[in-house]
Amino acid sequence: MTETINLKDHIRSIPDFPKPGILFYDISTLLAHAKAWHETIEQMAAALKPHKPDLLAGIESRGFLLAAPLALALGTGFVMLRKKGKLPGITVRHTYALEYGTDTIEIQSDAVEAGKRVVLVDDLLATGGTMAAAVTLLQQVGAVVPAAACIIELTFLEGRKRLPVPVEALLQYDS
C-alpha cells in the first residue's frame, strides 16, 4: 500500500516575511523531503502533460527549481526567464509594473523557436504580475503559451484573473 502524501504538510508558513503582515509559504521544506518533492514533480508532470509543451520556462529563481526536473520528467527542454542583466548574449526584455515601481525580466533571444509550445512554471502565483509579464515576454519571442503552472496559488489575491492562459496549481491557499 502506497503512503498518501499531503503536500501542504511539507510547506512551511513564515509570518511577517519578507515584511510585516505577509505570510510567506516556504517550499524549502518541501524540497528537502525526498518523497514529497518526488510526488510534487509527478503531480505537476501529470497536470502539464495534456498541454503538450515543447519547452518549460522557469521564472527566476524558485521557478528554476521546479521547471528543470519537470522538463526531465516530461522529456522537454527548459529555458530560463531571469532578471535584467543576468543572461549572456542577446536578450529580449519586458518591463512591468509592480505595486511600488517596476521590474524587468529577460529571455535569451534565441531560446525559443517561434511557434513552440512553452508552459510557464513558477513556485507560487500571488497577484499574477510576474507571471503575466512572463507570458507576454514568451509571446513576444514567438512562443505559444498554452498554460502556466505553480505549486502554490494564493487564491485570495486573484492572480489567475490577470493571466491570459489557464493555470495549473497543485495547492491553493484561501488566506
Results as ranks from 00 to 15, higher is better:
110 D>M: 13
93 R>T: 14
134 A>T: 04
117 R>N: 11
113 E>F: 05
66 L>A: 13
19 K>G: 00
81 L>C: 07
36 A>S: 13
79 V>E: 12
137 L>M: 08
77 G>P: 08
137 L>Y: 05
105 I>H: 01
130 T>I: 04
59 I>D: 01
114 A>W: 03
44 M>K: 05
12 R>Q: 14
46 A>V: 12
129 G>V: 11
83 K>I: 03
110 D>Q: 14
67 A>T: 13
14 I>C: 08
57 A>G: 05
44 M>N: 10
109 S>W: 03
17 F>K: 08
56 L>S: 10
8 K>Y: 05
77 G>F: 13
114 A>I: 09
22 I>A: 01
76 T>E: 14
42 E>W: 00
64 F>T: 07
68 A>L: 12
129 G>E: 05
60 E>F: 08
82 R>P: 09
47 A>D: 03
101 G>M: 05
93 R>D: 10
74 L>K: 08
112 V>E: 08
112 V>W: 10
127 T>H: 15
56 L>K: 07
70 L>Y: 11
122 D>V: 09
81 L>Q: 02
17 F>G: 04
41 I>R: 14
99 E>N: 06
77 G>T: 12
50 P>G: 01
60 E>S: 00
44 M>R: 05
125 L>D: 02
129 G>C: 11
77 G>I: 11
16 D>R: 07
47 A>I: 02
90 I>D: 09
75 G>Y: 08
111 A>S: 15
67 A>M: 09
70 L>A: 07
84 K>V: 05
68 A>W: 06
109 S>H: 14
120 L>F: 09
90 I>V: 14
52 K>S: 15
14 I>K: 01
58 G>R: 02
92 V>G: 06
84 K>Y: 07
135 V>W: 00
9 D>P: 06
53 P>N: 10
108 Q>C: 07
50 P>Y: 04
61 S>K: 07
130 T>M: 03
31 L>Q: 15
17 F>E: 06
18 P>F: 04
